[in-house]
Amino acid sequence: MADRVGVQKRNLMMLSGSFYIAKDRDSRPQGDDSHFICEEKQTIGLADGVGGWSSHGVDAGLYARELMNNSLLAILTQPDRQIDLMEVLNEAFGKTKAEGSSTVCIITLQEDNMLHAVNMGDSGFMLIRQGAAVYKSPIQQHSFNYPYQLGNSANSDKPWQAQVIKLAVEPGDVIIAGTDGLFDNLSESLILEAAATGIEQGLDPEEVAWPVAQQAYYISLDREAVTPYMQASMMAGQRHIGGKKDDITVIVSRILDT
């Protein structure tokens, strides 16, 4: 009888870096976005405070920053590589008391070598494999420009309404996560184009995030650009021309074989 040969399980890790461009506002230089990278727990997260609160005199970034801080604190109490993201989101939501609301996306690489994510609203992520986008998280919105959002007001959404996502990943895969300032201004093909050189050259994740964020920023100022936001507005019977000025957060993560 032939000996049975065991196959050793591969241990993957996620190396991440980010770049943030805040919308030009003298009154709120931090912008409305917030994010974190937790290498210890192989987890990243981002949030986009809903700007409509500014018309009520509320700093829309406060809720997003508090939500991210509470998410990180909840993650640090979870078992290594066995993070329950819905538990994290519920705990962070319950402890966030700032006025306002926010979209949210949290992504972790688990010990099963699967990518786990919870996503609410129009922030999200793409999974890139061998230069092609093999997955993009869907947008959650009640109507055009009205995304699902966590908050403390009566009409805000709740954590249980977030999408729960689980994806198999391989060494060499790249995740590009971002707020709507990225995805409203750049199509999937333009994001791939902006990231391609850095991915091919094996640059550090933050060096890949930088040109992607910069390209989204340039397009956001272009009044003649054809953008995903412009196309969505036309489908909704509205008329927005060109780029959309917004805060832009980009987190890039590489999946590596340890």
Rank of each mutant, 00 (worst) to 15 (best):
E91T: 11
T108L: 03
V169F: 07
I176H: 05
L203V: 01
D80L: 15
R81F: 14
G121C: 03
P205R: 03
A133W: 04
Q161M: 15
G178M: 04
L89Q: 05
L150H: 02
A132E: 15
N90S: 13
I175V: 13
S123H: 00
T103Y: 06
E99W: 09
I176M: 01
L109M: 09
L85Q: 00
K97Q: 15
E87A: 12
I75Q: 06
F183W: 08
M120N: 00
I83T: 08
K166F: 09
A133C: 15
V174C: 12
A98K: 13
N113E: 13
N152H: 03
S101F: 08
I83R: 11
A132M: 11
Q201K: 15
S153Y: 15
E91A: 05
A162C: 09
N113V: 02
L150T: 05
E206Y: 09
T103W: 10
L115T: 08
Q163I: 03
G178L: 13
D204C: 01
N152D: 05
E200Q: 14
L72P: 01
A132V: 14
F183K: 01
A74P: 00
V164R: 15
G131M: 01
V104P: 00
F144S: 06
D80S: 13
G100D: 11
G94T: 09
Q141T: 04
G100Y: 02
V118Q: 07
A154D: 12
A162H: 10
L192V: 06
R129D: 14
D84F: 01
Y146D: 07
E99H: 10
R81A: 09
S153V: 12
S143L: 10
N145T: 00
G100R: 06
P79D: 01
F93P: 01
V164H: 14
P205H: 02
E111Y: 10
D184K: 10
W160I: 08
E99M: 11
I106N: 07
D184E: 01
M114Y: 12
H116P: 07
R129Q: 13
T197K: 15
L150A: 01
F144W: 08
S71N: 04
E99C: 08
L150G: 11
Q130P: 06
Q149N: 07
Q82P: 00
D157M: 04
F183V: 02
A168N: 12
C105L: 00
K97S: 11
E193C: 07
D122C: 02
P205F: 03
N69P: 00
Q163W: 04
A154T: 06
E193H: 12
L150F: 14
A196V: 07
N185A: 08
G198R: 11
L127T: 02
G172M: 08
F93H: 15
H116L: 12
R129Y: 10
L72W: 05
K166L: 10
L167H: 03
S71F: 04
N90K: 11
H142P: 02
F93M: 04
T179Q: 14
P171W: 11
